[in-house]
Structure formats: structure tokens, C-alpha cells
């Protein structure tokens, strides 16, 4: 199909995006976000063209200062001659599907220069987020942005996964209200490569740091430190004043260097691909299962279950056999 005549609109937009045209990058991001055949086409084009862009996840509780810190990091990266992009993910309202995406205002004065910031709503479909985010990160990397930073609220499993499968994951906690303990519960400790205690201008910051140190001290009990091979550093920051951003970024860069020096970067990327492929297979299967259940034979099975003639387990096994026999 590689003839000139089959050149689709997606191809054309991709060409412009790869040449650095921002509007085209913006369009591609909408296409991958919508999902479907066109999104797959974009993934086909961007896959393998993402170069060596450093993918950085920033996560933490709502209001921890992730966007403010990201804004400071981006300013620092630009000053160092980098060309960063940010994907800021915020929750959609489960009731209406609408969202207020307000991360940009925290990164205010940066929209100029060669910084690309995109806001993305979770749109209720959590499975979709797990596909849309990696696809969007690839678009940004293929357009030549490096690093590519993704901000997510560290509450839902998918959001934690999304940030946790980055090359480097920064977990932001704040003083008071047991934030470090909450982060532990939310599974954020497992994914952290760098900790930031933000709002360090507030009372209790050193207590929070100590809580984190204690939890890290204990992590050998769970085997976590052996799996990680490295104790994550803790950096204090006051993102509102910009204090600490340089140190945070230095630790992010150091983490990547550590990954490379210890042959772990490829492993991270492999587990990321594995995760994505798995989610995609699940989605494909889900559609197949729905189709199977809607078909007359599926309907018959369901009727038998409802009538008490067949157990749900037996019906499921039959359906799976049908599914495997289908192609």
C-alpha cells in the first residue's frame, strides 16, 4: 500500500507535524485521542520514529503543585537549550463528560518559545486513556520534542500506570495531612524514581521528608528496593518561587543516565510496550466478546444461564472456545 496514491490525510498531517508545524501536531493529538482506525494509522506512522526522547512522568495528589513545578522545569529546560513538550492530563466529569483543563495557566509564560503544551481530559474511558496517552507521547516525540513530560493526577490506577511507565517518574508530595502515607497507599511509592516534596515553604516539609525516608528504609522488606536497584532521591521544592526546579531536573537527568549505565532503559521501554500491547489486546477482545454475546448463539447461551440450565462459568468457557475458533 506504499504508493503515492494511497497517501491519506493522516499521512499528510504527519508530514507537516514531523517538519515541526505545531498546528499539525495539535491535529494529530486530537486524532489519537479520538481513537479508532485513524488513531491506529497515526500510531503506525509514529512508532519507531520517536528517537531518544526522554519520557518523564509527573504525578501526585490533586493540587500538589505538579503543573507549577512542570512550568518551572520547562523554563529551565528551555534555558538549557531543550525543546520540551508537556501532556497535561486532567479528569473529565463522570456525569457530563465535560472537563475544565486548567494546567496551562500554571505554566503560563512558557507557551511561547518552542514549548508545546497539550491538555487532555480522561474522557471517562479509562482503557482509552491507557492507549491515548502513549500514542500522544509518541506523536510529541516524533515531532522532535525532547523531553516529553506527562502530568497525571496520581489517584486512579490508570493514571498511576501512565506516569509509572515513563522512563523517569517524579512523584510530588506536599507537607501535612499525611501526604507521604497517602502516596504510599496509592501505589505511588512503587513507581517513584524521584521524589519531590513541594510547597517546602510550608510548615511540616521536613517531617514529610522524614516520612518518605522512613518508608524507603522499609522498602527492602517488600523487595521494592531490590527490584528498583536504586534508592530514589528526595528533592525539596517551592515551585511557586521556582526554588528547587534545577535540582529536580538534575535528578531526572541523573536517573536516565543511571538507566542507561545499568542497561535498564530498554527494559523500561519493553515493559511499557508490553503494557500497551496488553491493553490493546484487551480492548480488541472486549469488542469481540460483545459481538459474540450479541450474536444469536451468544444470546441462546445467555438465555440458558438466565433459565438456570447452564452455569455462568460453563457459558464463559463455551464462549471462549467460540472466540478462539472464530478466526
Amino acid at each position: 500500500m506504499n504508493t503515492e496514491s494511497s497517501r491519506s490525510p493522516v499521512d499528510e498531517v504527519f508530514g507537516r507535524a514531523a517538519a515541526g508545524e505545531r498546528r499539525a501536531v495539535g491535529r494529530l493529538l486530537s486524532i489519537v485521542e479520538a481513537g479508532g482506525p485513524q488513531a491506529d494509522e497515526v500510531t503506525e506512522l509514529t512508532h519507531g520514529r520517536t528517537g531518544t526522547a526522554h519520557i518523564v512522568g509527573i504525578t501526585g495528589a490533586p493540587g500538589a503543585g505538579k503543573s507549577t513545578l512542570t512550568g518551572q522545569l520547562v523554563a529551565h529546560i528551555v534555558a538549557c537549550g531543550g525543546r520540551p513538550a508537556v501532556l497535561a492530563v486532567d479528569p473529565s466529569s463522570p456525569l457530563t463528560g465535560g472537563a475544565i483543563l486548567g494546567d496551562r495557566i500554571r505554566m503560563d509564560d512558557l507557551a511561547g518559545g518552542d514549548v508545546f503544551i497539550r491538555s487532555m481530559a480522561t474522557r471517562g474511558h479509562s482503557g482509552g486513556l491507557a492507549l491515548a496517552v502513549p500514542a500522544a507521547l509518541r506523536v510529541l516525540a516524533a515531532a522532535g520534542y525532547d523531553p516529553v513530560i506527562v502530568e497525571t493526577v496520581g489517584v486512579g490506577q490508570v493514571e498511576v500506570d501512565v506516569a509509572g511507565t515513563a522512563d523517569t517518574t517524579v512523584v510530588v508530595v506536599t507537607p501535612g495531612t499525611g501526604d507521604a502515607v497517602q502516596a504510599n497507599k496509592a501505589g505511588l511509592l512503587e513507581v517513584a524514581d524521584v521524589f519531590v516534596v513541594n510547597k517546602a515553604d510550608r510548615p511540616g516539609a521536613s517531617d514529610t521528608r522524614r516520612d518518605l525516608e522512613l518508608m524507603l528504609d522499609l522498602s527492602h522488606l517488600s523487595g521494592l528496593d531490590a527490584a528498583a536497584g536504586r534508592r530514589p532521591p528526595i528533592v525539596m521544592s517551592d515551585a511557586l518561587q521556582g526554588a528547587g526546579a534545577t535540582e529536580v531536573w538534575a535528578e531526572v537527568v541523573a536517573h536516565r543516565a543511571w538507566l542507561v549505565a545499568n542497561d535498564r532503559l530498554e527494559g523500561r521501554r519493553a515493559s511499557r510496550s508490553r503494557h500497551e500491547v496488553r491493553v490493546r489486546v484487551e480492548q480488541l477482545l472486549e469488542a469481540d466478546v460483545d459481538a459474540l454475546l450479541a450474536a444469536p448463539s451468544g444470546q441462546q447461551l445467555l438465555d440458558s444461564v438466565a433459565a438456570g440450565e447452564l452455569s455462568p462459568a460453563a457459558a464463559a468457557h463455551t464462549l471462549r472456545s467460540d472466540l478462539l475458533a472464530a478466526d
Binding site: 473529565s92 466529569s93 457530563t96 463528560g97 465535560g98 472537563a99 475544565i100 483543563l101 496551562r104 491538555s119 481530559a121
Partner: peptide, 8 residues
Amino acid sequence: RDAGMEVI
């Protein structure tokens, strides 16, 4: 937002 739009 309440009408289902994404507001940037």
C-alpha cells in the same frame, strides 16, 4: 463543562 465540553 456541565454541558459536556472540554474547557481549556
